[in-house]
Design a binder for these strands. Structure first.
Lengths: 151, 151
DNA sequence: ATCTCTGCAAACCATTTGCAGCTCT
DNA sequence: AGAGCTGCAAATGGTTTGCAGAGAT
């Protein structure tokens, strides 16, 4: 149900065909760029990159393509607190959460089974089956002289 | 440093004075209403309630007052996925997280020590001290006939 | 008297949408 | 040919801001 890490574009094309949607130059450029880039990309960042390959691409197309990628399971929406929506490519079923440094705002990904097991129990305790999660934790370097302090 | 549950308004007034800010009819009405209402209130909801007491209150004043409450530690910002920012009163230092039912969107609060202990370790594992968190988990009723299904 | 607030309307900014023309299949 | 797609510009919707008048200390 999710794209293989090896060739997300092939999986993407297969899905488009399945859904009766078209593969276009712009759509492919945007999707390709998206899969190549780091995670946590904003629409603006993706647009800038995509325009290096196809300068006439517009905002609306990037928004529409990302929406499509999310709907089809190739991307995941992330909302941090910078006012923009960001997106992560989703190559397989694995999920991850985020540890954000309050000093330098760098984002560290993690996925911890013990946490998830416990959260499953919490949900169960309220009569629900855990279906998803969105975990942001914030951390700070204990070293006052940390290069990141105040960044 | 945080308001007492008994009399948040007194604490609020004290803080205003400390900061050289003024206590006004509108500000008080909004803050009072905010402390009386349930958690996870949106600006719009708060405005509607506040207008029952003071009909001429405007959007901007509600936004400004909430911003003030957050800055002064009396409220906490919450972003779920409905496009609006919501706010929780913050009566003491306790934090809580959210379990959201994917069927009926009801929001259940929880606070689990085992989860927090484990997250503290995760942060520590990356060289950081845990300073905050924002955890949303999504759950679904296991009963297919649940009244909430499809809600 | 002075400095802060308020209400209104306009401005902002991220995101969405209508539409005419273009591109896939 | 026909359905879907693109780019543009305009619309949207939540949130912020400028300003002139009102209110608090």
């Amino acid at each position: 149900m999710t794209s293989s890490k090896k060739d997300p574009m092939a999986a993407f094309h297969a899905r488009l065909q399945e859904a009766g949607l078209k593969s276009t130059r712009q759509r492919d450029t945007i999707a390709e760029t998206f899969f190549e880039l780091d995670a946590h990309i904003s629409v603006e960042e993706l647009l800038v990159e995509a325009r290096k390959k196809a300068p006439r691409i517009g905002y609306a197309t990037v928004y529409r393509t990302l929406k499509l990628l999310v709907e089809q399971g190739f991307a995941k929406t992330r909302r941090f607190d910078d006012g923009q929506t960001r997106f992560d490519p989703q190559f397989d079923k694995s999920q991850h959460d985020h540890l954000i440094c309050v000093d330098c705002r760098r984002i560290i990904e993690f996925d911890d089974d013990a946490v998830m097991d416990r959260l499953r129990e919490v949900a169960r305790g309220h009569g629900l089956v855990l279906r998803g999660r969105n975990i942001h934790i914030y951390g700070q370097c204990p070293d006052v002289d940390c290069v990141h302090r105040g960044a």
